[in-house]
């Protein structure tokens, strides 16, 4: 995070000029952004999550996520009596407004932010009958809302429950990893608004990205590794009871 502040000091004048382009939409992406130079993912530093729900709110605002559906959400796990196979999990309104206060000394509690894992061998894109959802050349699983039939087969195929049928558009909707932001040099809305740095956008193709050092030195894991989806949302310090 210090890194970004240094960035700012160096980039300040340039950033101001670039800002107009950011708001204007595509031009900057077309000119400066090369899809082949990126391979996006996410680092979720789980022990840092305080369950404030800022990410869920920011995501809903940034992406006009309809009420009752979630591109990202936060779960609160409660493992009682060391029974890891039976965690009590809640996610009231996706954790958007935070969580009820948890009682002291009642076992282990922790929060787990969830989102699309942007799998590289994604089972959802595999089953799409028409090619309306795909892994982009820079590693983001996207949905083409102009081509989607709304058959919901991909919703069934996602092991993580990250997709839904948009109640008005009647097409599939999901996390785009804020593709409209990351291609313009910004981070995702959830990362931007996370107060503790529990979420960090990572570019696995960028050799300077701290993710490489992080993964070398931390016990990281992906969700449901047995599904072999090539998930790119890396969780640091994930509890074994998390599904």
């Amino acid at each position: 995070m210090n890194l970004s502040r240094r960035h700012f000091l160096v980039l300040a004048p340039a950033a101001a000029i670039a800002w107009k382009a950011v708001l204007a939409g595509t031009p900057e992406q077309a000119e400066n952004y090369k899809m082949s130079e990126h391979w996006w993912g996410m680092l979720i530093d789980d022990p840092k999550c305080i369950g404030c729900g800022n990410c869920v709110k920011a995501c809903a605002t940034e992406n006009d996520v309809p009420d009752g559906y979630f591109r990202t959400w936060v779960e609160r796990y409660h493992v009682e009596d060391e029974d890891m196979t039976n965690p009590q999990v809640i996610s009231p309104d996706g954790g958007k407004e935070g969580f009820p206060v948890a009682a002291e000394d009642a076992g282990k509690y922790f929060f787990v932010p969830k989102m699309c894992n942007h799998c590289s061998d994604s089972p959802c894109t595999q089953v799409c009958p028409v090619g309306a959802t795909f892994v982009s050349p820079d590693g983001v699983v996207l949905v083409d809302p102009k081509y989607c039939l709304g058959c919901a087969y991909c919703v069934q195929a996602c092991p993580y429950g990250c997709r839904y049928i948009h109640p008005e558009k009647k097409t599939v909707d999901k996390c785009t990893l804020c593709y409209h932001r990351i291609t313009k040099g910004l981070t995702t809305a959830c990362c931007e608004s996370c107060p503790t740095g529990a979420r960090q956008l990572v570019d696995l193709k960028n050799p300077k990205d701290p993710i490489h050092e992080f993964l070398k030195t931390h016990p990281a894991q992906v969700l449901k590794p047995q599904m072999a989806t090539g998930a790119k949302a890396y969780y640091n310090g994930l509890d074994g009871s998390v599904r």
Binding site: A58, D144, Y147, H180
Partner: peptide, 12 residues
């Protein structure tokens, strides 16, 4: 579709 998704408006 990639460019279209990339062109969505930024709010943050």
């Amino acid at each position: 579709a990639i460019a279209e998704i990339g062109a969505r408006p930024v709010k943050y």
